[in-house]
């Protein structure tokens, strides 16, 4: 991800800032400009709480190589790591990593809460991308 794109996504990565439709109250994460339920374009920023439940998950044992040929310390050094689809208590679903546990500890339906971690760290020179991941409660 380019530096300007990382910068633009800081609110959603750091604080789970999504969007709320001002007409039908639908919540969206990641944020979007138009409500898919009612077509409204007046959507305001909305901070989602970091609690949710695991809907499904997979264990990554071979991370994707970096297209630019850089060594990806994170998540590369974390293998095996767990990627899950999480349904937040307020409704929206998102894809994120489950941390501080082994693959055997993760089960569908387990409750999770958000934590602040490094998302991507490429080599010793690149910018570090931070944001929310999740851990088991």
């Amino acid at each position: 991800m380019t530096v300007p794109r990382i910068w633009r996504k800081i609110p959603q990565y750091y604080n789970l800032i999504g969007k709320k439709c001002q007409k039908c109250n639908s919540l969206y994460f990641p944020p979007r400009d138009v409500c898919t339920h009612c077509g409204e374009i007046n959507l305001q920023n909305y901070k989602l709480e970091g609690n949710g439940e695991i809907i499904t998950f997979t264990v990554i044992r071979t991370p994707m190589p970096d297209p630019e040929g850089e060594i990806i310390d994170i998540p590369g050094r974390q293998i095996p790591y767990i990627i899950a689809i999480i349904k937040l208590d307020q409704g929206p679903c998102l894809t994120s990593e489950i941390v501080d546990c082994s693959p055997g500890e993760v089960k569908i339906g387990k409750k999770v809460k958000s934590v602040f971690r490094k998302i991507v760290e490429k080599g010793p020179r690149g910018v570090i991308q931070y944001g929310c991941k999740f851990k088991l409660i």
Partner: peptide, 16 residues
């Protein structure tokens, strides 16, 4: 620290 933790992530958790 976990692999994805550093002084910034610790500072954020403590600050929150």
């Amino acid at each position: 620290p976990a692999i994805d933790e550093d002084s910034v992530t610790i500072a954020v958790e403590a600050s929150r």
